[in-house]
Design a protein around this nucleic acid. Structure first.
Lengths: 127, 127
DNA sequence: TCGTTATTTGGTAAAATAACCAAATAGTTG
DNA sequence: CAACTATTTGGTTATTTTACCAAATAACGA
């Protein structure tokens, strides 16, 4: 049984969670996770995918490995990485919702798009 | 620092996603999201919760608002923030799984706890 | 063993992030 | 309007993250 909410103001817990989320918070790392969703890949394949220096890619993978998001398997000269926690993928659907909201809000057809500079609007610069 | 041009056309999408995930990747912000799960709170309440300077808290909230994670509502002198995308919360269960794995791996009762410093173990410092 | 390939590690510099203080802004009350 | 409160913005500094290069390590085959 997993206690949903441990001791309140357990600051350390949120630091642990932040550490893991930080390991996700980079475009190249997200791209690699997306690729790993369809199965394990060697570093060389991931390097070609993201297009950065291979040492950069290796370090990105190390960050995710240290966070427990991926795991690796050595096979001769190659190291293959794979997702360790597939539930991560479901989260990305939620991120898509955020982006969808953003896109809708940016639509010129929506209300309050012209002239509606009210106090409630945080970007209102009317004096 | 040289930023390479994207190789895949969807590179920009991953940059957008990373921007949103970055907005989650801070212990104070996670703490606030956790608090907002039970309903909207004013900045002053959140400030008391996280214990940082109120300007710091305000900036954290601005980061999350810009990312589309929270939204605000002005009520007299107060500004109340609330979650805009509750599905974020479900994601945290997945983060808990990662932490659970980590804790299990670190258990002193498990195998390979003493002397088993193998090449496969990331924390192996044997040369 | 030597040479080759795949990956990691160490170092450095640029860029991004985060904390706090001081000042500005917005809204309330008298 | 003046005084007061809640919040945001601007500025500065310290810390963290990131990218690349150079060198090290690991595993293979001749």
């Amino acid at each position: 049984m997993v206690r949903k909410k441990p001791i309140t103001s357990s600051r350390g817990l949120f630091e642990d969670k932040a550490r893991i989320i930080k390991a996700l918070a980079h475009p190249s790392r997200l791209l690699m996770i997306d690729a790993l969703a369809s199965g394990e890949k060697c570093v060389c394949e991931l390097q070609e995918l993201v297009g950065s220096d291979i040492t950069t890619v290796s370090k990105h993978l190390a960050v995710m490995k240290r966070a427990g998001i991926v795991e690796d398997r050595k096979d001769g000269l190659w190291v293959h990485y794979r997702l360790k926690v597939p539930c991560i993928l479901r989260f990305f659907d939620c991120i898509d919702i955020v982006l969808e909201n953003e896109r809708e809000a940016g639509k010129p057809s929506g209300p309050a798009r012209r002239g509606a500079c009210l106090a409630e609007k945080p970007n209102c610069r009317k004096r």
